[in-house]
Design a protein around this nucleic acid. Structure first.
Lengths: 246, 246
DNA sequence: CGTCGGGTTGATAACTTTCAAATTTCGTGG
DNA sequence: CCACGAAATTTGAAAGTTATCAACCCGACG
């Protein structure tokens, strides 16, 4: 059935959690996924300040978006997972303000300005849903900001990993026990604004307290309730409702 | 002339920097500004988790958006100035994820879900421009994230104040000498993820180095070039082009 | 005049980074 | 299956940054 092949797309799965995707929306979604590429881990996708006017839908794999500072420090802004957009903003603004790099081998669908225009014209419902998804992503950057600004290193670590878990659940890549996570401690540290060494100690503390373990590419919740309590975790900001155009 | 009265709106001024506002756009913009309110400094506008489904355009004054943590700490996510949106996201998602509070007396125009719908239908150009503006605001939250995550306290302070200056320039409230700034050191500290005491020392250092002074509600650049160099400041991420729908 | 919010300063404590090095893990070729 | 090298993780010790606590100053305001 056509529906099945479409809901096979992580983005469709994500969107369909919130709006009922109609025939024309699924059609448009399929068109957005026509131009596919596979990119190997480690290759730069887009460079700071480069003019691209291209965006991607991440179908499979992990990516991080980051910015390098002139002193060589790196701040990771976000990790992207299946169903997320890459560089949607660079379609709207002249410069792309940060760079992307695949953590694993990834599969992406290229989305052009023309795609988006078409989408706005042919299926405004879908366009609104996409903007809703983008808006939701923004909400998570805000939470990330709060993590870094006002939470202690250990709380911050716990909170971030929980948040990541909820996102992965949305596309079926996590459950209440934990999830597979290909991040190195260096990557995670650069996301959390910590040194890798200190992060390592925080992870150890979380493990020793029997709250969460992050080993061998696997995040495991050891005591979910206690963990959310420690992390001051509240998934409300990811709560969902239909977007404005239904 | 009608144009003049419209460009008198800070939002119109901001948008018109990037797209040519046509008759129908200005008309729609005017409609968005029909329902006005004045709110005194210090009164809460919207509470964490409250369901509002209302947004505002800030016409005059300063607002901060923030989140309180359960341990009482406060992280300020952003300051809003003339022409900025308040709570646009709460129109799209069920919960508003953080609270707003006016710093000064403010003038706002209330924008409802219906307004936005109408806007999408009647003037998609304008709708796109509004989304562009929102996207631009998001880009600034990202820069703010980088400030907090990987810049030292003093660089962070300088960078943030420069960024604020550029935003104020867009609506005619700053020039290359500096700007009026009603923030207290406590507010600024909570935005930067610093203690007020440490921020105070950073400000002193910036003053002693003859880079920037922040006193008596006035930010003054003492040596703009040296300041941008210290702050690793690059306004590229705020660069502008026409939004996708022209 | 007294209070209050904001700003400033010093001393101390806590947290986090940096540097250096040992250990473990993992992919690859022998 | 084992050896090897590279990458990732872990630990210790020392240094640096930032927070916290406790005052004190100052101007606005009733």
């Amino acid at each position: 059935m056509d529906d099945m092949s479409n809901l096979d797309l992580p983005l469709a799965r994500k969107l369909s959690t919130f709006i009922e995707l109609k025939e024309e929306d699924l059609l448009m979604l399929t068109r957005l996924h026509e131009n596919n590429r596979i990119v190997e881990a480690g290759s730069g996708l887009e460079h700071q300040g480069a003019i691209h006017h291209k965006a991607y839908i991440l179908r499979k794999g992990w990516v991080f978006s980051y910015k390098l500072l002139k002193d060589g420090a790196r701040q990771i802004v976000d990790f992207q997972i299946s169903g997320d957009f890459l560089g949607l903003r660079s379609l709207l603004l002249r410069t792309s303000d940060h760079s992307f790099e695949p953590i694993t081998q990834i599969e992406v669908s290229e989305v052009t300005k023309e795609h988006l225009k078409l989408c706005f014209e042919m299926s405004p419902r879908l366009a609104a849903a996409l903007l809703w998804a983008a808006s939701r992503d923004e909400a998570m950057v805000v939470e990330h900001l709060i993590d870094i600004g006002r939470r202690s290193a250990i709380v911050r670590t716990a909170h971030f990993l929980l948040e990541l878990g909820v996102r992965l659940e949305l596309v079926g890549l996590a459950d209440r026990n934990g999830y597979h996570c290909p991040l190195t401690q260096y990557l995670l540290a650069d996301a959390l604004g910590l040194s890798a060494i200190h992060l390592n100690r925080c992870l150890r503390k979380l493990r020793e307290k029997n709250l969460l373990s992050f080993q061998g590419g696997q995040v495991t919740y050891l005591d979910f309730t206690a963990l959310t309590r420690l992390a001051d975790f509240d998934s409300d900001y990811m709560d969902h409702e239909k977007p404005i155009l239904h």
